[in-house]
């Protein structure tokens, strides 16, 4: 279980990384935290010719407030930072709540936000959580024919970013540089929960929810997303509509949970049947939406 040979580029800036990625004649992969990529290399399930190490790029490690009062996470922000940053706990408590479910402390020391999103694993927690928060990703590449150092950037909503299992809208010459989230509105409550075989494992199923209640206690807006609920990290738009315009009574929440389970497309694997996953999605949706709503009310 030793990795295959590869060329190694330690990028010190985003431009250096983009420069390396721009040369698509060599199969190049960015190396972020490496907590998913390196096991794949060790099993020789991935055999890239070149790795571009992003760990030396300081500008990607920042946690910032955006112009509209939202949050920008540099791609190389570590899970550990998310977990412990008091600013995040205050502004996006869902991130602080969900991050401890990601693997183990030693993995969170290295694992990054950008790496998790770019990996596009339907079983991972962070993509689902970020979907619930309405996140978008910022993507850069070197401009074709442009001067070295000139970039083309684009922003993609996370809902459009995930195209399939381990498959995203990211092109081989592109780098995910940041994830941005709009500010949370007054009256919002969020929650996350999952069922995993062991603490730190990929979940059998997980649910993240965000609900906004108006002063009359009626739900104005809801977002629910699933871990291991389909081929991609998925936002359950239809199920969320069951909640909108209603007071979050137990009956309404149960209907939402049922809709979520009914419209989910979980896969069967050695750890859980499709029926079991669907059932867990219903149970977890009920629990998580109730908790999110309770958090607004209390």
């Amino acid at each position: 279980m030793k990795p295959p040979p590869f060329d190694y580029v330690a990028a010190a800036t985003v431009d250096e990384a983009l420069e390396a990625l721009a040369d698509t004649s060599v199969e190049t992969r960015p190396l972020a935290g490496g907590q998913s990529l390196v096991p794949m290399l060790n099993f020789r399930l991935a055999v890239p010719e070149r790795l571009v190490d992003l760990n030396g790029i300081d500008e990607l490690s920042r946690i910032e407030e955006t112009e509209d009062g939202g949050l920008r996470l540099g791609a190389m922000v570590r899970h550990r930072q998310l977990e412990h940053d008091p600013f995040i706990a205050r502004r996006m408590p869902l991130l602080s709540e969900a991050t401890p479910f990601i693997a183990h402390p030693q993995i969170r020391s290295r694992g990054t936000v950008g790496g998790s999103v770019a990996h596009a694993d339907p079983a991972a927690e962070l993509p689902a959580v970020l979907l619930t928060l309405g996140a978008r990703v910022r993507i850069a590449r070197r401009s074709l024919g442009g001067e070295p150092g000139s970039r083309v950037e684009r922003t993609v909503g996370l809902g459009e970013f995930f195209l399939g299992p381990f498959f995203s809208a990211l092109e081989p010459d592109e780098l995910l540089t940041a994830i941005e989230m709009p500010p949370s509105a007054p009256g919002e409550g969020t929650a996350f929960d999952e069922v995993a075989r062991r603490r730190g494992d990929y979940a059998l199923a997980g649910v993240a929810a965000r609900v906004r209640l108006n002063s009359g206690g009626v739900c104005d807006e809801a977002a629910i997303s699933l871990v291991n609920g389909g081929a991609t990290p998925c936002l359950m738009r239809e199920a969320a509509r069951t909640l909108v315009g209603q007071e979050p009574t137990p009956e309404v929440i149960e209907a939402t949970a049922a809709a979520c389970a009914a419209t989910s497309e979980p896969a069967a694997d050695m750890h859980a049947s499709e029926a079991y996953r669907r059932h867990l999605i219903q149970v977890l949706t009920r629990r998580v939406v109730s908790r999110a709503a309770d958090r607004v009310l209390t």
Binding site: P39, F43, R197, R198, R199, G200, D201, Y202, M270, H271
Partner: peptide
């Protein structure tokens, strides 16, 4: 509760790693 080797219909082992073959940990 946790440990089971899974073989597919062709006799291939499906969970030959510590990711999918579950040894109990301190929280289990």
């Amino acid at each position: 509760f946790y440990e089971e080797l899974v073989f597919d219909e062709f006799g291939g082992m499906s969970n030959a790693s510590f990711m999918d073959y579950l040894l109990p940990t301190a929280t289990d």
